[in-house]
Design a protein around this nucleic acid. Structure first.
Lengths: 241, 241
DNA sequence: CGGCACTTTGAGAGTGGTCAAACGTCGTGG
DNA sequence: CCACGACGTTTGACCACTCTCAAAGTGCCG
């Protein structure tokens, strides 16, 4: 599937697109790359000449604060326009790192500028994507203050389940999980040992199965209830045209 | 000063505006309101018909997660377009609450739509404001993972010092601080007792003076060094036209 | 002077970190 | 087929960070 088809699907999942807009998106040039687990997709500090659309795999934003190890501020799933914002900002303040094998489509900044100039509604949909990213960031801030241990782990798992479900990557109640317990700890700001205990507790409660790089939620509602997860912040529906 | 002059100043602090754009912004109708400390400015779940520009005071975003007390995901200072995103999203997933006495200018959604439609560059500046919000959110996620205790408290104080400085609200090395220790704890996701100890330590190190609702940084560089604070993420400069 | 709100201190307990070691699993090479 | 090593998972011991509850101290204002 071409890059632009992915962008089309990505925008269409939240708002309706006209036929003309679909044509414009399909005609949008892009360049495809693949990465292995842990590869640097975009390096902190550089001025990217385009933005990257995540087609397959996951990616994370990794910051360096003071003298600490890298810390993760966000996780992205297929369909996410990972650094769409870099075409208005001049440089990234963090790395973008591949989580599991990744496929990325790069879209040049000039083409994004054309879209925002010539197709205001499409421009607003791109803006909307960045606003939803911001909502997720705020929810991460809030859940880190409100939840501890297995609830916090469960909340992230619910979020991934919902986000991957939206792009058709959940089947049989489960999904591919490219992060191991160490990676999950890094994303959550926990230690491996602590995540291990939280996962053990979720398993014991019958709320999580996780083997061989695949996660399954035997009782998604129960996990959501347990973790205080309300998917409203993900804007999964089509409320406006 | 009229609402629209504030918006003009707000956008001009990061990018250059043309004379025409300044005229458009000054002609933008808005409605002014004032609030007392703790007042609800916008309630979770409603569909606002406009966006609010913070003119004076501070405001915070307060979430409810699971069965927890309210948790704060962001803090806003004068010049911030607090819920600019609500004109593309259909409802807020959190409250916006006044911190100290606040003045707010409401701008109707239809006028924002006109601007984004008729003045693409202005639209991009509005988009940029929301992108910088998102950067701050990510930094909050990252600092909560990377920093503890007095470093985390110090980082927030450095951020406030920098953001208030950008809008001319720092004088004599200090600024008005409408939050008390309890409020600061709420914003940081800490308990009052813990914040009190962190503040005590910062004072003992000569990095903070805080009396009578006013905060002063005797050694801003020293505090930034101590807290691992790098203001780059706030985009204080004018790198693009 | 008497409230009242905020700050400060102390004690005890839960959450989460570090270090270290044991255990499993899986792919490679003999 | 088995031995081996690499890597991820699991467990235990111990300690630091942070919370809650409680109470005392401080400053402001009627």
């Amino acid at each position: 599937m071409a890059a632009t088809t992915h962008l089309e699907a990505s925008l269409a999942r939240r708002r309706s697109l006209t036929d003309e807009e679909r044509v414009v998106l399909r005609a949008l040039p892009s360049e495809r790359s693949t990465y292995a687990h842990g590869d640097l997709i975009v390096r902190e500090g550089i001025a990217p000449e385009g933005s990257c659309l995540l087609v397959r795999g996951m990616a994370m934003r990794a910051h360096r604060i003071g003298r600490s190890e890298r810390v993760v501020s966000a996780l992205h799933v297929p369909g996410d326009f990972v650094d769409l914002h870099s075409f208005l900002l001049d440089h990234l303040d963090h790395d973008i790192v591949a989580v599991g094998p990744c496929t990325i489509d790069f879209v040049a900044a000039e083409h994004l500028e054309e879209i925002t100039r010539d197709y205001p509604h499409l421009g607003r949909l791109l803006w909307l994507e960045t606003l939803i990213d911001a909502k997720m960031h705020r929810m991460w801030v809030a859940t880190r203050a409100a939840l501890r241990g297995s609830q916090r782990v469960g909340h992230l798992i619910c979020e991934l389940h919902a986000r991957l479900g939206m792009v058709g990557l959940v089947n049989g109640g489960g999904f591919e999980m490219p992060l191991d317990q160490r990676g999950l700890a890094e994303v959550l700001g926990y230690s491996v040992v602590h995540v291990n205990h939280a996962v053990r507790d979720l398993r014991a409660e019958g709320l999580l199965e996780w083997t061989g790089g695949r996660m399954r939620l035997p009782d998604p509602g129960g996990l959501a209830e347990f973790a205080g997860f309300d998917p409203a912040y993900l804007e999964l529906t089509h409320p406006k045209g």
